[in-house]
Amino acid sequence: MQHVTPPSGLSHIGLLAKYELTKRFTNKSGMVALIAFMLIWAILLLYPIKSASEFIMGPNFRSFTEALFGPGSLQHLFEWPVAEFAVFWLAALYLFPMFSIFIAADQFSSDKQRGSLRFLTLRVSRGSLFFGRFAGQMLIQLSLIILTLLATIAMVLTRDMSLFIPSLTTSLLVMVNLFIVVLPYTAAMALLSLHANSARQASIFAIILWALVSIIIGLINFKFPQLSGLNMILPGSQISSMINTQGLGSLAYSPIPLLQTVVILGLGYLLMKRSAL
C-alpha cells in the first residue's frame, strides 16, 4: 500500500486548471470548437482587419471620422503603433466576451448532472474545485487570445517586417486588457453553470440575465439619473468606453471588471459550498 499526502488547496487549483486546459485541447468536441474559433478569426483577420487597417492608414479616413463623429471622438484609433491592432481591438473587445459565454458555459453543469463532481469532491475541497475550474477556463481563453494575437502579428509582418517589436509590445498590452475583460464573464459563467443543468442552459441563463439586468438598469437610470453608476455592476459595461482607448490607457478601466470578478467569484464560491452534489 502506498501512502501519499494530499496536495495543498492551491496545488489542487493548479492541477484542476491544467486538466481543464488539457481537456479542452485534447477531446474531439473541444477541437471542433477550437477549429470553429480559428476559422472565425482567420476570416476576421483576412478580410475586415486587413482591409480596414489599410483603410485607416489612408490620409482621408481621419478627416472623414472627424467630420462624422466630431473632432477627437476616435482620436485614439489613430494612435495605435500598428494599424491592424486598432481593428483587432475593436473586434476582440466584443468577440472575446461573447466567446466566453459559450466557451466557459460548461464549467460545472454537465459534471453535476452526471454526478462526476462527486468523484472530485472526495479528493479536493469545493473551493479548490470551483477556483480550479475557473482558472482552467481563464487559461483556455488566454491561450485563444495569444493564438489570435500571434496570427495578427504574422499578418502584420507580411506587410512590414519592421513592425515586429511594436506589434509584440502592443500584443502584450492587448493580451492583458482582454484577459481582464473576460474575467467577469468567465466568473459569471462559473456561477451560472453551477445552477444550470447543461452548458446550453447556462448560456441561455447568461443571455437572459444580461438582457434583464440591462433593461432594469436602464429603467432605474431613466427614473433616477443620479444612479447612473449602477450600470457598472453589469460585466462588460466598460467595453464601449474602452473602444476609444489603447495601450496602458485601456488598463485604467481594469478595476471595474476586476471588482466584478471578485464579487461574482465570491457568490459562486458560496453557491458551490452550499450546493447539493
Partner: peptide, 28 residues
C-alpha cells in the same frame, strides 16, 4: 472514498486517464 450512487465518469475521456487524474489529486 466512496462509490456514489448514479455517478458517472466523463464520457469523453478514457477510464485510465480519469482514474490517473483522481490519483494525482490524491497526491500521486
Amino acid at each position: 472514498s466512496a462509490l456514489p450512487q448514479d455517478a458517472e465518469l466523463d464520457p469523453h475521456f478514457t477510464i485510465a486517464s480519469q482514474l490517473q487524474f483522481f490519483a494525482t489529486l490524491q497526491g500521486f
